[in-house]
Amino acid sequence: MAARHFLIKFSIQDKTYHFVFFVALISCFSYRESIFWMAGGFTYGIAAAIFLFLIAQELLIFLDFMANKKNPALWKIGNLCLMTLILAGFNETVMVAHIALLGQLFIILAYQNWKSRVTCMIGAIMLTAVIGALIVKYAPGNLTRMNDMSSQNVMASATKSFGWIFERYTHIFIMTWLLFYSSLIVFYPRKPNKSENKYLLLIIAILFFTLWASLFTRAYVLNGSGPSRTHTIDFVILSLAAFIAALYIFNSNMEAVFQSRRLKPIFISFSCMFFVALILRPTADNISFLDTLVNLKYSKSLKTYMSARIQMAQNGRDTALSVDDLKDKSRPATYFDDIQKGSKDWRNVCFSNYFHLKEIRLKNSLSEPDTLGEITSPGKD
């Protein structure tokens, strides 16, 4: 729904292309941590959808202002403020990225007309985003977690995150641009519109600095780019920038676009480019979409393995449980995390508490027999 809403705001009504655009976005998500892990799906998958909707609305307000069109109704701004407040509660990455996006729009609008109604509207949404960030910052759970995080140098983190954009995302941006440009030619969802190109490059720059802010958050707090699920937000921003760049070239070369569709060899070439870019483009898990689809078949063996473990846990109430490890955890696309060899690990403790076990741990394959698992009494284990 968010992908469709975004395209409609750019005058693309074609339902086939709505689906193509959706597949291009969803195929770059972290499958393990954003889709097949429920908490990750809520905090990053749904957050990405809300963020995409808000980006579409806020860019539309900006473009309408630049084109001297009618100001949005106050009730719409109220809804955007509410969604902005909700978005801040999903995760810090999307929270900071959204504030950075709003901050840039506010500065540009204030430069154009400080006293305009639209500037005040964007300012109100940005203020709501900051209030949401403060609520998150001082939430009890985050206060506890922040004790284990050491802040880095601001300038060093800013420089490092800026470099990551080119070091880690240049090849992905190029592949995504090829994907979207070829898709615009192959599916031809609308006629090119040269007049809208005036602000597309500015939007790309805004999205670039939004991506920088997203990376800076993790560079400053974690001294790294964070787990795969956080990269989902990066990929959404990167994909939108690549789409806008593709749309800019698509609009700028009307005659070339028409010639490409008339000449069958060129049309087939763009079709192949679209397909190859889609299946070989890396996802947030740093594997291709094709690899992810192939690895789905290993989820059946994972389900069998986990069903046997859960059955043992249900039958082993008030005992200590020793279970086999999964041989290759890199295969199943639905795998996320597991209990550890040390029974005191927090994952093991949570599992034990849930199933009312004395303890649970993975077997040491070097010293214990390779069977499905065994139940032992606490005194003998």
Rank of each mutant, 00 (worst) to 15 (best):
M1Y: 00
R4Y: 12
H5G: 08
F6G: 00
F6Y: 07
L7N: 00
K9M: 10
K9L: 02
K9Q: 06
K9V: 02
Q13I: 06
D14V: 02
T16R: 02
Y17H: 03
S27P: 09
F29L: 09
Y31T: 05
I35F: 11
W37V: 00
M38T: 11
G41D: 08
F42P: 08
Y44M: 06
A47I: 01
A49G: 01
E58M: 15
L60C: 11
I61E: 14
D64F: 02
A67G: 13
L74T: 08
G78L: 12
L82R: 11
L85E: 10
N91A: 11
M95L: 15
V96Q: 07
L101N: 04
L102F: 03
Q104G: 07
L109S: 02
T119M: 05
C120Y: 14
C120I: 08
C120K: 15
T128M: 14
A129D: 03
I131T: 01
I131N: 03
G132L: 01
I135K: 00
A139G: 03
L143C: 05
M149R: 00
S150C: 08
S151C: 04
K160W: 00
F162C: 01
W164E: 07
I165P: 03
T170M: 01
I172V: 07
I172Y: 00
F173K: 00
L178R: 01
L179A: 05
F180P: 04
I185Y: 00
I185S: 03
Y188W: 12
K191S: 00
P192F: 03
E196S: 02
E196I: 13
L202A: 11
L202I: 09
L202W: 12
T210R: 05
T210M: 05
A213V: 01
A213P: 03
S214Y: 05
L215E: 08
L215M: 10
Y220P: 07
S225C: 04
R229C: 02
R229F: 01
H231W: 04
I233P: 05
I237Y: 00
I237W: 00
A241S: 03
A256Y: 01
F258A: 09
Q259K: 09
Q259G: 06
S260F: 00
I266W: 13
S269Y: 09
F274D: 08
F274T: 13
R281Q: 05
D285S: 06
S288R: 10
D291A: 15
D291P: 12
N295G: 11
K297S: 13
S307M: 03
A308D: 14
R309H: 12
R309V: 11
Q311M: 15
M312R: 13
D318L: 14
D324K: 15
K329C: 02
K329E: 05
W346F: 15
N348Y: 05
V349W: 03
V349I: 13
S352I: 12
Y354W: 14
L357F: 10
R361M: 02
K363W: 11
N364K: 14
S367Q: 14
G373K: 10
T376P: 13
T376C: 12
T376D: 06
K380I: 15
D381Y: 13
